[in-house]
Nucleic acid binder design. Structure first.
Lengths: 257, 257
DNA sequence: GTATAATGTTCTATAATATAAAACAAAGGA
DNA sequence: TCCTTTGTTTTATATTATAGAACATTATAC
């Protein structure tokens, strides 16, 4: 459990790297120092260090800075070390190709979900989620599915420590209501979200079980509400369940029944 | 140009993250502190900060540490910001599928090449290269091709500042010999390496041209020497050239002739 | 089941380091 | 050409990272 103070220069360095997540591929020193609210020279020290280490690089023409390719070497390590990502990728791609929708995998981390992987749909609609970032448990398909397979105690703890913030009119904000949905998910082995994060956007989600009662992670197929409900009839739910069963077996060596 | 001293805690933090590139997915605090040669508590401070920031995480069962998924969010940013990676990926995959060999893309960075992307072959043979890491210019296919399209002055500078280290019996260590090969590459628009990094391993490489005389990056197909020479006859070189021409056009808007 | 070893975590004093201000350099625009 | 803007270097100082030691917790041996 982390209680000690985090090292200031680390916190600052990473927030500089994270600046590039907002779409800009190049930033000037000025822009960086303004964004993080630090002195020019302090910023320079940080940026310069990151550049020396290969995690940022400077465009020689306009002096601007961008992210360095060395970050990709860490990515590699993350993926190599995560059987989960390695194994599930092709299955997620298969689902995405078949239904032409966006597919996510996610796991729980301290009361939130973190996207592990994502396969974008081959359509004009782009779902704005980022691998490695957090999202709520109570309003995402993957989140609700993962919550459903926690113990009753854990669910109670979650509900008493997390406010069920409304993101749309559909977001479930009533704990009792959410608990009823949890029971429903456990009964059917399937869940989803119905415009609970954003109007017009829905998903179907299933858990990848680790044992008979515990979920390791979850996968989902998301897209415009109309298409998702249509696809559900066309076997999307069944396909998701089958995929999850395969992953369960390969990753955790667990087979149902 | 970076001359200032790099911030110590940053240097240390990243060297901790880089420890996980050696294949181990979990490391104990002790292992980490031993590996980087720092005091237990100093190491703890660094590791704890990285954990708080989401770039590492601790296994609650055995206390061991691993890389955090948040690294993947930076990956995302790198890829989003690099048209090069985004655009070329499917083409590299196509080549890899067709020839069942490993495909690389790489660009130059301060006299070395850095792998930008890699598609592993669907065979038992695994080529030990890592995206985001450096390699020599004088003995890799991509490196030689990129060197060939530098100006004569730049080539001279490179040769006078870099020792041509021999990695195998085939590595070209004679500057004059290398210059002759550069001319050959420019003549044919194609290069490669013939067991110059490792015995038994060869590759064919082509530049992706930015203009008539300058290369933006390079792509290569690598594999066991026998298969590569066989594939060359079966159109590998032609396919590579065609792919490179397409990428040239899409990424740099440059068309030959 | 107890004792002992090994490792993870917290506390604290101190030295070392990151920091910001200011000076300087270089580039760009008026 | 001058002035503004932004990137880089220098330097003094205060803050912060650091390592040693104590403490806590877990694993191992007996």
């Amino acid at each position: 459990m982390a209680t000690t103070k985090t090292i200031q220069s680390l916190e600052r360095a990473f927030s500089i790297l994270e600046l590039f997540q907002s779409g800009k591929s190049e930033l000037s020193l000025k822009e960086i120092s303004d964004s993080i609210g630090l002195n020019k020279s302090t910023t320079f020290g940080l940026v310069n260090s990151l550049t020396t280490l290969g995690y940022m690089l400077q465009n020689e023409d306009n002096q601007k800075y961008s992210l360095g390719l060395k970050i990709l070497s860490l990515t590699n390590a993350v993926k190599m070390n995560n059987i989960l990502i390695r194994v599930s990728r092709p299955y997620l791609e298969e689902l995405s190709t078949k239904y032409r929708e966006t597919v996510h995998s996610a796991k729980e981390l301290n009361g939130n979900i973190v996207y592990i992987d994502k396969v974008d749909a081959d359509t004009s609609m782009y779902i704005n989620t980022q691998i490695g970032t957090k999202n709520y448990m109570h309003c995402t398909g993957v989140g609700k599915v993962l919550l459903a397979y926690k113990s009753d105690d854990e669910i109670e703890t979650f509900l008493s420590t997390h406010q069920l913030k409304a993101l749309t009119f559909n977001t479930i904000t009533n704990p009792e209501h959410l608990k009823r949905e949890m029971a429903e998910i456990r009964k059917n082995g399937i869940g989803g979200d119905d415009e609970e994060i954003e109007m017009g956007l829905s998903c179907v989600a299933v858990p990848v079980m680790k044992s008979e009662t515990t979920a390791g992670f979850a996968i989902s197929v998301a897209g415009p509400t109309v298409r998702i409900s249509e696809n559900k009839k066309n076997g999307l739910a069944e396909d998701l369940k089958n995929t999850a069963a395969k992953l369960s077996e390969i990753i955790y060596g667990y087979t149902a029944e």
